[in-house]
Structures are given as C-alpha cells and as structure tokens.
Nucleic acid binder design. Structure first.
Lengths: 152, 152
DNA sequence: GTCCTTGCAAAAGTTTTGCAAGGTG
DNA sequence: CACCTTGCAAAACTTTTGCAAGGAC
C-alpha cells in the first residue's frame, strides 16, 4: 500500500503550462495572462483549490484579476477538458436517508443521482486502517455516465 | 452485473419513519411534525434531493414550513447519523488540473482534499460499458478519513 | 413549565449575468 | 481590427445567524 507522489518540480509545472498553451491554441481559445495564471495555480498544487482560493492566490501578484474571471475561466477549462471538477455532484449537497453501504451514479447530462447496489462493487479492496497518513473511515464510489433518458 | 433495487413500498417507508421516531427519542431530540415530514420525504425517494427540493415537496402539504428549518434539520440529522450527505466534498466545487486517473481522500475534520495514486485502487472492477441504464464514462473513488494533523 | 425548535428577517456567502472597455490573434 | 475575454456592478441564488414565539416532553 504505497502512496506515489506526483512530480511537481518547477520545470514540471512549466512543462504543463507550455502544454496548456499549445492545447489552448489548438482549441482556438485565447491565451491571456489571466488564463495562464489560473492554469498555473492549479497545476502547482494537489490541494484541489476552490474558485475563491485560486482567486486569492493569484491576487497576490495580479491584484486586478476579478473573481468573475476565475469562475468563467474554470468553467471554460472544464468544458474543454483542460481540467476536471473534483466535486462531481454539481452544486448543492444531496441527502440520503439510506445508511446501507452503497454507491452512487450521477448522470452527467441531467445531474440526477441514483443509488447502486452492486455485488461486485460492494467490497472493494480498500484498506480499513490507514492509507498514507490517513485513518480511513469510509469510502464511496461515484460513477458518472449518461442515463437512458438523456441518451435518447 | 445486476442492479438490486431497494424496497420502497408504503409500509416499508412507514417502518423507517417509526424507526426514526424511536431513534430520535433515544437520542433525546424532539419529534416535531416538521422533522417527521423531512425524514419521511427523504426516506421516500432514492433521488438524493437537495435541501431546496425537500423544502418544496413538503410545502405542498405543509405550507408554513421554512427553508431555514429544513437546513437546520438536515444538519441535525446528519450530525446524529440519522442520514448521510452524498456530497462529501463540503460545499464549493474543487478543481484539479491533473487529468491522470486518480482518486481522492478528504479529511472529515479539516476538509482538505488530497490525491491518491494507489496501485491496488487504480483498476477497480468497474464496467466500462453499461451498468443498469447508464453508459459509464468514468468513476472516482472518494475515501474519507482523518489526516495526521487532525489526529494530533 | 422548561427549554428545544421553529419561522421570520436579515446577513453572509457563492455563483451568474449584462455591458462597456480592453487585449489577443 | 474583429471579436473573444475581462472587470465592474448588480442580480440571483444558497446558506447561516439572531431573536422572539411556539410546541414537545
């Protein structure tokens, strides 16, 4: 049970920023200093920052950037597949009275959430004690896909 | 790969509401009509409603209930373990520039999110085609636990 | 009757939108 | 120089808090 760290040296980050720039050109979106700053901020951390956090960090060296720009830019990047959203449940918290262990599937089109009770997914080989520095309390699997209604 | 449905007949729901009532008494919280309505609403669906959705449904037959009550009640239930929150990432969306497949672990105490690159979790036996009515696009595993800093 | 719970109103926090100015390709 | 992108301001939306009235035990 080993926790592999991703490389995140300065050169590695610059490489990713370069890749981001060429990818942006391919995709036909403009490479603005704000966009580079936002991408770089995200590429420099594994802390999965929120919009607000990214905004605050960038303001240290780019005081005029607006929060609106950060929101819009992250949305743009996400739609183009340049970054991903960790929170796959789309905004507001969803509640569940069912305390039986089960997993969830979200339709990426209509955002509906459904339960999955699947034998083969019921007992994953997840350590019940510690993983890295964490004492594991539980886990949940979140599948995403497109439901039948949305495929029609 | 079979998708087992949970029973959700009227009697079954009433049973769960009864159980909720006795559990509330054990826990020493008051059983108010609002609380019963909120619990029942949640127990009657597998759609994982948001606070707003629950509020709107209950208003049909309980027009004076306030949204504040629904928020406070769900929070109370969750803290007591009567229900669970599906969105384990705590509020705002979190972004990730790392598109390599990996999983996430959230510290339930400080809400920090970290990446996990773990061999044994890298290839789960998740169907790559369809599960039930869904065309699967991807999945992510969300572990929760307490990080070292928070355990001290 | 006590004290937890509710509803209202207001505040705080988060995300989106319209529009004119600015900058990239 | 065309038009996409930005910043500002305001609006829309979501969640939390304070406080007095009401209801459960």
């Amino acid at each position: 049970m080993e926790n592999i760290m991703m490389e995140s040296s300065a050169e590695f980050i610059d490489d990713r920023v370069d890749e981001f720039i060429s990818r942006s050109k391919e995709l036909g979106i403009k490479v603005t200093p704000q966009r580079v700053a936002i991408y770089k901020e995200l590429a420099s951390t594994d802390q999965h920052p929120s919009t607000e956090t990214i905004y605050n960090k960038i303001r240290d060296y780019y005081p005029n950037i607006s929060l609106t720009t950060v929101y819009r830019t992250l949305e743009t990047f996400e739609k183009l597949g340049l970054i991903s959203v960790v929170n796959v449940l789309y905004n507001a918290a969803r509640y569940d009275a069912n305390l039986t262990p089960h997993h969830h599937i979200v339709c990426t089109s209509c955002k509906k959430v459904e339960d999955i009770y699947d034998e083969s997914l019921a007992n994953l080989d997840v350590p019940d004690k510690t993983l890295g520095d964490y004492k594991i309390e539980g886990y949940s699997l979140l599948l995403n896909g497109v439901c039948r209604d949305c495929r029609d």
